[in-house]
Simulated assay, not measured.
Amino acid sequence: MATLAPRPHALLALRRPRLRTPRARAAAPRARGAPVAPQAARPRRVFLGLGAAFVDQLARMASGGAPSRSFVASARPRQGVSPVEQVILKNVEWPDEFPFKAEDFSRFDESSDALFYSAPRYVTHIDDQAIEALTKYYSEVLPPSNTPGVAILDMCSSWVSHYPPGYKQEKIVGMGMNEDELKRNPVLTEYVVQDLNVNPKLPFEDNTFDVITNVVSVDYLTKPIDVFKEMRRILKPSGLAIMSFSNRCFWTKAISIWTSTGDADHAWIVGAYFHYAGDFESPEAIDISPNPGRRTDPMYVVQSRKRIA
């Protein structure tokens, strides 16, 4: 049975993300090294009729009523299970056309990203426990270190990539906004400075990379379908794209649809990017958060592989 994806303005997670640590509560948007949970910084957008439509759809599905072709989740939330783990992105009945509007990719601060990222930030944007969880996940899914012929692209990279300690490949390319940060990243063999919101065209040949990673930056892409199509182009057949995110961001630079929704919604949003880019396998949403229920940053992954032609 196909799973119906949620409408972009009536998504799964209706709860407001919480600031997880005292450090996050103290952070201000202009403290550039300390991203904050977006909904702590400003009110979410109001979606008219959200609750009634959402509950009505769930009730009709549970009672055996024929679901309409709407963009609403087809399962009741399960107690004690991560909202992101409940996002099943396989066999989804997606709308025929990309469902998001231009205003969904607007930002509070539309000034030049090059200016915003001009000063290097030698900080981490998630806490140590979340970093450890992501590094552990990478150790399980990345090709073994020094595998002949392997090439990896770390998209939206910085001075650290959170790969396992000592991880090496013949080709690990970092793409980011600040050259000083990229120069300092010890895992990279080369780097490219590029603003994907200005130029989403990736400067690589077709079928170049085995893996593409992106850490806590997918929420800043204003042309995500263009970028994901380029990711598909430069991945080798069956190549893996790993998009990881938490509930923190520079909220003035994150896109509107991200700052106005919650964790599970974000998994649907990234899943939609993969779907509408075409020629990706059904994406998978994974909650890799450390110490569930404790006061640490959450950590999520939505990933997919390029289809073999």
Rank of each mutant, 00 (worst) to 15 (best):
T3I: 09
L4S: 07
A5T: 08
H9V: 06
A10Y: 00
R15Q: 13
P17H: 06
R18I: 09
L19I: 04
R20D: 02
R23C: 01
A24L: 13
R25S: 08
A28R: 15
A28Q: 15
R30P: 02
R30N: 10
R30G: 07
R32P: 06
A34T: 06
V36C: 06
V36I: 10
P38L: 11
Q39I: 03
A40I: 07
A41C: 12
R42P: 03
R44K: 11
R44P: 13
R45M: 14
F47L: 14
F47W: 12
L48G: 06
G49S: 11
F54H: 12
D56V: 14
A62V: 09
S63A: 13
S63W: 05
G65Q: 14
A66S: 10
S68M: 02
S70V: 12
S70Y: 08
S70N: 07
S74T: 13
S74V: 05
P77F: 06
P83I: 01
E85I: 07
K90P: 03
N91G: 11
W94H: 13
E97S: 12
D104G: 03
R107S: 00
E110P: 04
S111Y: 01
S112T: 02
S112C: 04
L115H: 05
F116K: 04
Y117M: 03
R121G: 15
Y122F: 15
V123S: 14
T124S: 15
Q129P: 02
L134I: 01
L134Q: 01
K136F: 15
Y138D: 03
L142S: 06
L142F: 13
P143L: 15
G149L: 09
G149M: 14
V150C: 13
L153C: 11
M155G: 03
C156F: 01
S157Q: 02
V160T: 05
S161T: 15
E170W: 04
I172E: 00
V173E: 11
M177V: 06
M177T: 02
E181A: 08
R184Q: 14
P186W: 11
P186A: 06
T189H: 06
V193G: 12
D195E: 06
N197W: 00
N197C: 10
V198F: 02
E205R: 12
N207F: 04
D210M: 12
I212L: 14
N214F: 03
V215K: 00
S217E: 02
V218Y: 03
V218M: 13
D219S: 13
K223P: 07
I225G: 10
F228Y: 07
M231P: 04
R233H: 04
L235M: 08
G239C: 04
A241H: 02
A241Q: 05
I242R: 02
M243I: 12
F245N: 09
F245D: 10
S246D: 10
S246Y: 00
W251N: 09
K253S: 04
K253W: 02
A254I: 04
A254T: 08
I255M: 09
S256T: 09
I257K: 02
W258N: 08
T259S: 09
D263A: 15
A264W: 00
A264D: 05
H266D: 08
A267F: 01
I269K: 01
V270Q: 01
V270Y: 00
G271R: 00
Y273L: 14
Y273M: 15
A277N: 09
A277I: 03
P283K: 03
I286C: 04
D287M: 12
G293S: 07
R295P: 05
Y300N: 00
R305G: 10
R305D: 09
I308D: 12
